[in-house]
Simulated scan of single mutants.
Amino acid sequence: MDMAIAQNELRQELGDFSSIICLKAIITGVEEALGDKATAIALISAGRQRGRMLAEKLGLVDKGKEVSLADVTQKVQYALGKEGTRLCVVDKIIQEDEGYKVYTHETVCSAGEPQGSSRQCTFTMGAIQGFLEAFLGKRLRGTQTESTLREGTHDVFEYKILGAVQK
């Protein structure tokens, strides 16, 4: 893993990574305590913050130049995929009239969920949103439009452009 993505080891023996099983237990416990909607809001917000921090750590913020969609896609794939945090695999990003559509699979949020589950990929959607916002300098609103848990080939997130990021 590239040193730009790797954190200083937070734990001497176990390292920085933890199990998806424990993460999912945290999520379901918070859902039980706060409810689905409040948990979704919190996880999207936490994901956005993580995505922004990751983009900043990689030196991708405030470059003051136009960035190609291919470059954005490559950076997101690297940072969140197998070489990075392993949050998900980003297959492609498509620019649309009002924003962007991101196709992912093996999201941490869908892992271990049964087919037909209503689980949404809130943290993953938020992390990609925060990364894109920081990298593109645009404020976005994300929604999940397809799920591998509900007969989709991908977990698909659509991000509508709301405006420029306030500095």
Rank of each mutant, 00 (worst) to 15 (best):
G47R: 03
R86D: 06
Q115T: 13
E32L: 14
K138D: 05
K92I: 01
A70D: 08
T148V: 08
F131K: 02
E133A: 03
A40V: 02
A79I: 05
F17N: 04
T145I: 15
K92T: 08
I41P: 00
T145G: 06
R139G: 08
G99K: 00
E106R: 15
G112H: 10
A25F: 10
L149I: 02
S45G: 12
L140A: 07
M53P: 02
A127C: 09
G59E: 07
M1C: 06
L54D: 05
I21F: 11
K65L: 11
Q12T: 15
L149G: 00
A33T: 14
D97V: 05
T143G: 03
I21M: 10
K65I: 15
Q120K: 14
M1P: 08
I26Y: 01
T85G: 04
I41H: 12
L58I: 09
I27Y: 13
K92N: 07
L54T: 11
E113R: 15
A111V: 11
P114R: 12
E13P: 00
D36C: 06
K57N: 01
I161S: 01
F135N: 14
L136N: 03
G35L: 07
L60F: 01
R11D: 12
G64H: 03
S19F: 09
T73I: 02
A33Y: 13
D62R: 12
T143R: 12
A111Q: 13
D16G: 10
T124D: 04
E106W: 13
L10I: 14
Y100R: 01
Y103S: 02
L69H: 03
E151M: 08
V89K: 07
G130Y: 07
L162I: 11
F157D: 02
L60S: 01
I5H: 02
T122C: 11
D91Y: 11
I128V: 13
V90A: 11
L69Y: 04
I26G: 02
E13K: 14
Y100D: 01
G152M: 03
V67N: 00
G163I: 06
A164R: 11
D71Q: 13
T148A: 00
S18Y: 15
Q49D: 05
S68T: 15
D2H: 09
D62S: 12
E113Q: 15
M1V: 13
I128Y: 05
G112W: 08
G152F: 01
A4V: 12
L34S: 09
G35T: 10
Q115L: 15
S118P: 11
A111E: 14
S118H: 11
A4F: 08
A70V: 07
V89Y: 06
V89P: 01
G112A: 12
S68M: 06
D16K: 08
D16I: 10
L43C: 04
E9G: 07
K57D: 04
E151N: 08
L162V: 10
L23S: 13
L132V: 07
R86H: 08
Y159L: 14
T148W: 01
L23R: 14
A79M: 01
Q95T: 05
K63V: 04
T85R: 06
Q129F: 02
I21W: 09
L132R: 07
T85H: 04
Q166R: 00
Q144R: 01
S18P: 03
K24H: 15
I20Q: 08
M125P: 06
D71C: 06
S45F: 04
G116A: 05
E158G: 02
L58W: 09
D71R: 10
